[in-house]
Design a binder for these strands. Structure first.
Lengths: 149, 149
DNA sequence: ACATATAAGATCAAAGAAAGTCAAAGATAA
DNA sequence: TTATCTTTGACTTTCTTTGATCTTATATGT
């Protein structure tokens, strides 16, 4: 068992009761005798949106990394969407997804409106053209994930 | 729980009955065993207009810091928010707005979650650092606009 | 009334405490 | 043996805590 898998198991364990956990990066790294950035590696390779996790963090005194697991029961369709988006998505495809999910009653009209607003061309006007679809994909994934928590 | 959060909680507690409170900076600092300027730090990082608070103060004998929760009708608050964002907005300020709007029942919890997800650092990871706050402002405005329709 | 003392709060910069990033070096699997 | 995954470490950014110094209001003695 390599270090990364051990760390992942520890985090999974911590997530087990409530589906959410705050970890102290330096403290955990010290406990395991590894460098702190190893924790970041584990998180960025195993606790991604595609894996169904939302990660937030705060620096400075009292800082933390918060990991939240998306519920996978009623929302497996949402996870399926997240996993099929890939690295970029254009406006049209995105809208198609949203309409489709709304049609299937997985997203409420209200939620659909918000997501549409966020991924619209208007919202992303300032992003360089060649990056637009990448940023859109990233936003879309985070929002779909937020819908499933 | 770090010191700043503790102080913030105490203030929130004091605000709870009437939505307004006068605090004695030195007295509070002494009670908590911290330097007085710590109170200023907490106020300027957590009780800003974006968070929905108005702060006044008076020096000298009988001095005080008065904190008031601002209250207005929802459409004017939304308009006010949009008008005050300007061209860019950072993560923290944005979250402050969202929490404030949620607290004032202008955004539903669900909507707040979507907006938070959309403007999170995670969503915008692929945007060049110097453009992040610009894109965030644009997304945020579109979504607030969507909320007010 | 005026000058001085005392009692607040404000400001700012430095130090400290986390977490983030990125690239290079090492291992492992195809 | 090459591509991918892991480990490490140096450096950066963000948030918090502390302390010294400044400003403003009130109180008091002449």
């Amino acid at each position: 068992m390599n270090l990364s898998n051990m760390i992942a198991n520890i985090i999974l364990d911590m997530l087990n009761d409530s589906g959410q956990t705050d970890i102290q990066r330096n403290e955990l790294a010290e406990r395991l005798g590894c460098v702190p950035s190893q924790i970041n590696y584990v998180i960025s390779s195993r606790f991604t949106p595609e894996h169904g996790y939302i990660v937030e963090s705060r620096r400075g005194g009292g800082g933390y990394i918060r990991i939240t697991r998306a519920q996978n029961d009623s929302s497996s369709i949402l996870m399926h969407v997240v996993n099929n988006i890939g690295n970029e998505i254009d406006d049209r495809t995105c809208r198609a997804h949203i309409h489709n999910l709304t049609y299937q009653n997985i997203l409420h009209a209200q939620a659909a409106k918000f997501i549409l607003a966020a991924v619209s061309e208007n919202s992303l006007k300032q992003v360089e053209p060649e990056k637009k679809d990448i940023v859109r994909a990233s936003i879309f994934k985070q929002m779909i994930l937020a819908a499933s928590i």
